[in-house]
Amino acid sequence: SYYEILDVPRSASADDIKKAYRRKALQWHPDKNPDNKEFAEKKFKEVAEAYEVLSDKHKREIYDR
């Protein structure tokens, strides 16, 4: 789930989600993982997609249904 990707509970606040996104984006940024760039790019995209949905109140409500 998007919550698992960002490592936050379903009850996470918008601020918690933003902090988790920043932490995970740094962790999986391809430039930070030169030895495993392809895998890092995949993870980085997953993190971005999760944040896009969970950071938008309307999209998150739909996702949580």
Rank of each mutant, 00 (worst) to 15 (best):
35 D>Y: 09
10 R>K: 12
15 D>L: 11
49 E>I: 10
39 F>H: 10
28 W>Y: 12
5 I>F: 05
47 V>T: 04
54 L>G: 01
48 A>F: 15
63 Y>V: 03
23 R>L: 14
35 D>A: 13
37 K>N: 06
25 A>Y: 15
7 D>G: 15
33 N>Y: 14
63 Y>G: 02
40 A>S: 08
49 E>W: 07
3 Y>Q: 00
52 E>F: 11
45 K>C: 10
9 P>K: 08
29 H>D: 14
26 L>G: 08
62 I>C: 12
60 R>E: 02
7 D>W: 04
55 S>Q: 06
53 V>K: 03
59 K>G: 04
17 I>P: 01
43 K>N: 06
49 E>Y: 07
13 S>M: 05
28 W>V: 03
36 N>Q: 12
3 Y>A: 00
32 K>R: 14
59 K>S: 08
6 L>Q: 00
45 K>H: 10
45 K>D: 06
49 E>K: 11
35 D>N: 12
4 E>M: 10
59 K>Y: 05
1 S>I: 06
28 W>N: 03
44 F>E: 03
62 I>L: 13
43 K>E: 03
23 R>Q: 14
20 A>P: 00
31 D>T: 10
42 K>P: 03
55 S>N: 08
15 D>R: 10
41 E>V: 12
30 P>K: 06
28 W>R: 01
65 R>C: 11
29 H>K: 07
22 R>K: 15
7 D>Y: 04
5 I>E: 03
14 A>Y: 15
2 Y>C: 05
4 E>H: 10
9 P>A: 10
59 K>W: 06
33 N>C: 07
24 K>L: 15
49 E>D: 10
22 R>T: 14
20 A>W: 01
30 P>L: 04
11 S>H: 14
53 V>M: 05
36 N>V: 06
4 E>N: 10
30 P>T: 06
23 R>I: 14
2 Y>T: 01
20 A>M: 04
5 I>G: 01
54 L>S: 01
12 A>R: 00
22 R>A: 14
59 K>D: 04
60 R>Y: 02
30 P>N: 05
7 D>F: 04
30 P>A: 07
34 P>R: 11
9 P>V: 07
63 Y>R: 02
13 S>N: 11
36 N>W: 08
43 K>W: 06
59 K>V: 04
5 I>A: 06
48 A>I: 15
26 L>R: 10
45 K>T: 07
39 F>D: 08
64 D>R: 01
13 S>D: 07
61 E>G: 07
4 E>G: 07
15 D>K: 11
35 D>W: 11
17 I>Y: 01
22 R>G: 10
42 K>S: 10
41 E>F: 11
18 K>I: 14
9 P>L: 07
62 I>D: 10
15 D>F: 08
36 N>R: 12
52 E>L: 12
41 E>C: 13
46 E>R: 05
2 Y>R: 02
41 E>G: 08
57 K>S: 12
14 A>V: 14
10 R>N: 10
35 D>P: 05
46 E>L: 12
33 N>P: 04
52 E>Y: 14
20 A>I: 01
5 I>S: 04
5 I>M: 06
34 P>A: 11
19 K>G: 07
17 I>G: 00
17 I>N: 00
14 A>P: 12
8 V>W: 00
23 R>F: 10
62 I>G: 06
45 K>A: 13
60 R>C: 03
64 D>K: 01
15 D>I: 10
43 K>H: 07
6 L>G: 00
3 Y>P: 00
9 P>D: 10
39 F>K: 07
16 D>F: 07
57 K>Q: 14
1 S>R: 11
53 V>N: 05
2 Y>P: 04
32 K>L: 15
59 K>Q: 10
43 K>Y: 08
63 Y>Q: 02
3 Y>M: 00
27 Q>R: 09
29 H>F: 06
1 S>C: 14
2 Y>Q: 01
3 Y>S: 00
49 E>F: 07
1 S>W: 11
21 Y>I: 02
18 K>F: 14
62 I>E: 15
33 N>F: 15
23 R>G: 06
32 K>G: 10
33 N>T: 05
56 D>K: 04
15 D>T: 10
34 P>H: 13
19 K>C: 12
10 R>F: 13
3 Y>H: 01
24 K>E: 04
31 D>P: 04
27 Q>G: 04
41 E>R: 12
5 I>D: 03
11 S>F: 12
63 Y>T: 02
40 A>L: 05
21 Y>G: 03
11 S>P: 03
20 A>Q: 05
5 I>C: 07
33 N>A: 04
26 L>Q: 15
32 K>T: 13
11 S>C: 15
13 S>V: 05
17 I>F: 04
38 E>H: 09
61 E>M: 11
31 D>H: 07
56 D>A: 03
14 A>T: 13
43 K>A: 07
42 K>Q: 13
53 V>G: 03
6 L>W: 00
51 Y>Q: 01
61 E>S: 08
21 Y>C: 05
48 A>D: 07
10 R>D: 06
2 Y>I: 03
12 A>V: 04
4 E>D: 14
19 K>R: 14
58 H>P: 04
62 I>R: 09
58 H>Q: 14
28 W>A: 03
51 Y>R: 01
61 E>A: 13
37 K>V: 12
10 R>Q: 11
40 A>F: 08
3 Y>E: 01
57 K>V: 14
58 H>I: 15
62 I>F: 08
16 D>Q: 11
19 K>W: 09
36 N>A: 10
39 F>G: 06
40 A>E: 03
31 D>K: 09
42 K>A: 13
39 F>S: 06
36 N>F: 08
31 D>I: 08
54 L>C: 01
48 A>S: 13
58 H>M: 12
36 N>L: 07
21 Y>T: 02
2 Y>M: 06
57 K>A: 15
14 A>E: 13
32 K>P: 03
45 K>Q: 12
27 Q>D: 06
30 P>C: 06
39 F>Y: 15
11 S>W: 15
52 E>I: 11
12 A>N: 01
34 P>V: 11
16 D>M: 12
8 V>K: 01
24 K>Y: 05
58 H>T: 15
24 K>F: 07
57 K>H: 12
64 D>Q: 02
60 R>I: 02
11 S>N: 15
31 D>V: 05
13 S>Y: 03
28 W>L: 06
46 E>D: 08
8 V>Q: 03
1 S>V: 06
4 E>L: 09
19 K>P: 01
6 L>C: 01
60 R>H: 03
56 D>L: 03
11 S>M: 09
21 Y>M: 05
43 K>S: 05
42 K>C: 13
26 L>Y: 10
36 N>D: 09
26 L>E: 14
4 E>Q: 11
54 L>M: 03
24 K>H: 05
61 E>K: 08
56 D>C: 06
3 Y>V: 00
59 K>L: 14
18 K>E: 15
27 Q>K: 09
29 H>I: 05
37 K>Q: 12
55 S>C: 06
34 P>W: 13
9 P>T: 07
1 S>H: 09
56 D>Q: 05
38 E>C: 08
33 N>G: 04
33 N>I: 04
37 K>F: 08
18 K>P: 00
23 R>M: 13
